[in-house]
């Protein structure tokens, strides 16, 4: 299944940060949703700003337009404000992209658990992300840090408890 680009992707002004405040807000919203859906489609969890600049998202070869680095920073900053992005270093060169926020992931996992009647049972983290049972689920292949975050979010809601096991971490759902 190939990624479906939004119409803005072929609109040259999309690649220039608009000076008009209203226009810019709409433009940034479109960028945010593009970045998130792109990452989601390719299951990307971390992004490097320098690499991102050359990636297809920010570089439309067909219309020969590139989003400048400063504008990419603005988009990322916007994503951070919305809670979908976290910087990994102070220089803001690498970041975590959370196209689903931890709470949303947690909700998905918990739904799956209750649907399969496995409340009150114990899982290893590996089982959840890479087990055969979860193969058809969206959270299959979720990176461990993200999974842990999601479960922590569930824990604060009182729906799960994380504990340490011999070879890693386990979780019990309520």
């Amino acid at each position: 299944m190939s990624f479906e680009w939004p119409w803005q992707y072929n609109f040259p002004p999309f690649f220039t940060l608009q000076p008009n405040v209203d226009t810019r807000q709409k433009q940034l919203a479109a960028w945010c949703s593009l970045v998130l859906s792109y990452c989601r489609h390719h299951k990307l969890y971390t992004l490097d700003v320098m690499e991102a600049q050359e990636s297809l998202v920010f570089n439309n070869k067909k219309i020969e337009r590139k989003l400048p680095v400063e504008a990419i920073q603005v988009v990322f900053e916007e994503l951070r404000k919305k809670g979908n992005l976290e910087w990994l270093d102070k220089n803001k060169s690498r970041c975590l992209v959370m196209w689903r926020r931890p709470e949303e992931w947690g909700k998905l996992i918990h739904q799956w658990v209750s649907k399969n009647g496995m409340v009150n049972s114990v899982f290893t983290l590996y089982e959840l992300s890479n087990g055969d049972d979860t193969e058809s689920e969206e959270f299959h292949g979720l990176e461990e840090w993200m999974l842990l975050r999601s479960l922590q979010a569930l824990q604060t809601d009182g729906k799960a408890e994380i504990f340490s096991m011999d070879d890693g971490k386990g979780v019990k759902f309520f």
Binding site: P12, P13, F15, T16, Q18, P19, N20, D22, T23, Q27, E64, R65
Partner: peptide, 8 residues
């Protein structure tokens, strides 16, 4: 807000 720019 009627127009937008493409600065390339």
């Amino acid at each position: 807000g009627h127009l937008c720019r493409d600065d390339s």
